[in-house]
């Protein structure tokens, strides 16, 4: 039967949904019983250490560390590929580890280069 296994995973969604359903009322109740004074517009300014906010709040980036995110996208794939191999390790012949080692070697090369590049903070 197609779609049998999905039933197991539905409890995770159920848990997710339950937590949302249980926590949203907390916000709603809080909104209901808490005081709401709209008199002072300064209260709703973003935090700027007591100064009047200047400039845009959403413009700043640590570009120096951007390569790490790029690396993450690629090496995340690698890590989960390793899981596909690792979970089946007990069933495959020993020789079959070699391609994975080759894969890892290639990825190590890439990682070494990437770490070298990302270590040079000045070029980012």
């Amino acid at each position: 039967m197609v779609g049998e296994l999905a039933g197991n995973y539905s409890t995770v969604v159920l848990m997710f949904g339950f937590a949302m359903a249980a926590m949203a009322p907390a916000l709603v109740i809080s909104r209901m019983i808490s005081p709401r004074k709209r008199s002072n517009p300064v209260k709703f300014l973003p935090m700027e250490c007591g100064q009047v906010p200047s400039g845009e709040g959403r413009t700043h980036f640590m570009m120096q560390y951007y390569p790490y995110i790029l690396m993450f996208v690629v090496f995340d794939v690698m890590a989960i590929f390793l899981y596909a191999w690792g979970s089946a390790l007990l069933e495959i012949p020993k020789m079959a580890t070699l391609p994975m080692m080759g894969f890892l070697a290639i990825m190590f090369g890439a990682m070494a280069f990437a770490l070298y590049q990302s270590g040079r903070r000045r070029i980012w």
């Binding site: 700027e48 250490c49 007591g50 100064q51 200047s54 400039g55 413009t59 980036f61 570009m63």
Partner: peptide, 12 residues
């Protein structure tokens, strides 16, 4: 554009 001015203080 990369540079952001940050007030550290007095309420910090």
């Amino acid at each position: 554009e990369r540079i952001m001015t940050l007030n550290v203080g007095p309420q910090h």
